[in-house]
């Protein structure tokens, strides 16, 4: 099956993560990506899937996600029942990357179905149809989660974690973030430099006054609003300050930091 030519989603490498990912893919090793929200995990996987010319099937995990949601189930149609593959099964059958986003949100009994496909057996037993699928060479499982202290109660079981090679992501360095903002928003260099300085300042507050540092995603939003003509203070308030906190005192302090960077 030849996949159609796709446009490569823009991804600005931070280090050698693209090479590492590719090596894991060649060795048929599953990959775990950890990092704070909005630091480019999803974008990275989309980029690598396109680069390796693999179909990408993404599942956003949540605490109601059952094993059947991943593997598949029988449905009724026209007086008869028929089987429908879940996203994991589809990826195993057809090859490609199955990407489980925020995997720690899934219940522990759900993540257990990943075990046989993520060890050297690389098989997916489907209890309900009696089949056992053998994963093809171009099947790859990728999971991601945010390891921040807010999520300590939701960590993966060691027996699940230890089936993956892991890449740790963090907010990009200023040069990399500058390149990302430029590419994503088209804003002028001067204001991008100001946004990146501001990002560094807001990130100093992570863990003290803020639950998490400001994400690259939010910076992209702010840059886009500014590029579309919104006044910088207003754009930052809407895209950075308000999304970061509900606490009135904190919002006022963040606004003061923004105002110290961007003139009215």
């Amino acid at each position: 099956m030849t996949a159609p030519e796709r446009e490569l989603p823009f991804y600005q490498p931070v280090g050698d993560e693209c090479e590492l990912f590719e090596a894991a893919w060649r060795q048929q090793l599953p990959v775990l990506i950890k990092g704070p929200t909005g630091c480019g995990k999803t974008r990275f996987v989309a980029h690598m899937a396109a680069r390796l010319n693999l179909p990408l099937i993404t599942v956003s995990c949540h605490d109601d996600l059952t094993a059947a949601d991943l593997v598949g189930r029988h449905l009724i149609g026209d007086g008869a029942t028929y089987w429908v593959d879940g996203p994991l099964t589809r990826a195993v059958r057809e090859g490609g990357i199955c990407y489980l986003d925020e995997v720690v949100e899934a219940r522990k009994d759900t993540t257990v179905v990943l075990h046989p496909v993520t060890d050297d057996r690389r098989v997916l037993p489907i209890e309900r149809t009696g089949e056992t699928l053998i994963a093809p060479k171009n099947f790859m499982l990728v999971v991601s989660y945010n390891p921040g202290y807010q999520h300590v109660l939701k960590s993966l079981k060691p027996s699940t974690r230890q089936r993956f090679v892991a890449l740790a992501f963090d907010f990009p360095r200023p040069e990399v973030e500058t390149a990302v903002l430029k590419q994503e928003s088209g804003l002028d260099d001067a204001r991008i430099a100001q946004l990146v300085t501001l990002a560094g300042q807001l990130r100093r507050l992570a863990g003290y006054d803020l639950e998490e540092g400001v994400s690259t995603r939010l910076l992209v939003y702010a840059a886009k609003l500014m590029a579309a003509g919104m006044a910088p203070r207003r754009a930052c308030r809407t895209a950075l300050v308000e999304p970061l906190s509900d606490d009135t005192d904190t919002v006022a302090a963040l606004a003061a930091i923004v105002d110290a960077q961007f003139a009215a």
């Binding site: 300042q201 302090a253 930091i257």
Partner: peptide, 15 residues
Amino acid sequence: ETLLPVLFRALGGDP
């Protein structure tokens, strides 16, 4: 007193 320490830290002051 809630605002100033946050500003101070963000701008590089010793947390």
